[in-house]
């Protein structure tokens, strides 16, 4: 599997990571090598094998419906790069 420059640019955009144009070719090479490496999984017979998403050997635990958290807006906002009037602020979004 080989990725070209355009594909890398598309993925980078999907991941919201700015990649300078001059790095795209190099990155395409690296990513292609990694994909070549993982390609060998094709040799494994996985017919009738269930995919494994987690090794945790238990059922999903549920918590009771009680308010036990929140109520600390200062702590939530404390690390904010930009806050105003109790909100986080970002560049204006036009819908």
């Amino acid at each position: 599997m080989s990725l070209d420059k355009a594909a890398v640019a598309r993925i980078a955009h999907l991941a919201r990571i700015k990649v300078p144009d001059e790095e795209l070719d190099h990155l395409a090479g690296e990513l292609s090598r990694i994909l070549d490496f993982v390609e060998q999984l094709g040799e494994v017979d996985t017919a009738d094998v269930a995919p494994m998403a987690s090794v945790a050997a238990q059922k999903l635990r549920r918590r009771p419906d009680e308010v036990t958290d929140g109520g600390y807006p200062e702590a939530v906002l404390k690390n904010g790069p930009e806050t105003a009037e109790g909100y986080f602020a970002v560049p204006k979004v036009v819908e």
């Binding site: 993982v38 999984l41 094709g42 494994v44 996985t46 094998v49 269930a50 995919p51 494994m52 998403a53 090794v55």
Partner: peptide, 12 residues
């Protein structure tokens, strides 16, 4: 992704 998860089952 799905293939890798199946291989993960094999490893287990």
């Amino acid at each position: 992704y799905l293939k890798a998860q199946k291989v993960r089952t094999r490893i287990k």
